[in-house]
Write a protein that binds this DNA or RNA. Sequence first.
DNA 1: TAGATTGTTAATCGATTAACAATC
DNA 2: TAGATTGTTAATCGATTAACAATC
Lengths: 226, 226
Amino acid sequence: MSENNPDSPPTPHAATSPSPPTEKKIPKAVIKRLSLYSRVLQNLEIMDREKVSSRELAARLGLNSAQVRKDLAYFGQFGVPGLGYYVSDLRQNIKRILGTDRAIRLALVGVGNLGTALLSYAGFARQGFHIAVAFDCDRRKIGSTKGNVRIYDAADLARIVRQEEIDIGILAVPADHAQAVCESLIGAGINAILNFVPAHLSVPDSVHVHYVDLSIEIESLSYYLR
Amino acid sequence: MSENNPDSPPTPHAATSPSPPTEKKIPKAVIKRLSLYSRVLQNLEIMDREKVSSRELAARLGLNSAQVRKDLAYFGQFGVPGLGYYVSDLRQNIKRILGTDRAIRLALVGVGNLGTALLSYAGFARQGFHIAVAFDCDRRKIGSTKGNVRIYDAADLARIVRQEEIDIGILAVPADHAQAVCESLIGAGINAILNFVPAHLSVPDSVHVHYVDLSIEIESLSYYLR
DNA sequence: TAGATTGTTAATCGATTAACAATC
DNA sequence: TAGATTGTTAATCGATTAACAATC
């Protein structure tokens, strides 16, 4: 989103459409909250709750009820005036909107310290996220498996990512490889990346990157001590 | 920040001052970017760069240069018109502002799957973040050490957190314990928490919580597939 | 000095919240 | 029906960006 400012000259983006004919652009923050609603709804379902109001949904997440209603209204009319939302119904709708009504296939690139931890982290599978393959460029790791996941040569990334129909790439390589690996992933058709590398990635607008950086988070938190 | 809306009745917060006599409130996003600047400056220092402009700093992070200048200007005048910023000088200033010019002491609560991964994650130490102690309530873990960190009984949390002068708490317990543990930490004087638990925490305004939730991130990313 | 870049103000943009008619 | 809660518009709030005088 740094295009067309006085810092970078107006880019003659051949690839980018002048203005996508989308009805209304949905803020990223809305999508993130959708996932939060989904989780709360899952809990409510376990508690056998049939209905829920925007007010309660908001309270359970520390949000404003108008925001909840507005977020949901981006995607259709899911509620019943005077009653609220039907828990299971709304949950299914949200999962469909997010595309998590099927298993999501992940590829991990970089099986170092952090990568290994991610492979053994059970939390993913429970939510329907499946690390299908891993990549590294260390001879000693290639061909082996870790946490039931086979480790392939990073040189074969593009081919295997296509073959295995990977949805999302997880980046956990050394910082100086991040941009290159990122480009390989994009070249292989990936346009959603979870980036654990403490480095800024340059990607086309069509590619979505989420940064996870614990050091930055801790550093930010230290500002608030005492 | 959910106070004073029609959802929650105006809370008669005895403890909260009506409006802190702070000069200007600094947005959380600014603090987060400060940490990013700090990292880029570290890299520039390694490259033996003496000076840097807001333009370059911005470009390296995909931001706007006016934003960089404005962020820094919250805290003083660090730049030289016509020249830019002195790399080492600015970096030191930012570290001082963030409070990371000394080692930060962390306490991990919950030594399960994820907690163990965090203990063995080397990335922290490098940045001056030190997990000083860990807590669990499993008899078999209490008293042992993992990754050089001693695991204490969660029942002794308050006492040890004070004794060890912990700055930040890391929450990695089962979801149904999160709120209670969070309150113990706050009771022990902690007001900065890194929360890995997929649950909303209710905390006073004075306490800062950062949520790290990989499942939510992946779920959000799946929205953008194709 | 001329050129460059800061710090800062004003303009723009986007997101959150309040309010309320419509509706069950 | 009366009470409750939605969907949505308008008002508010906050954050980003452009522009430029001041300054090295």
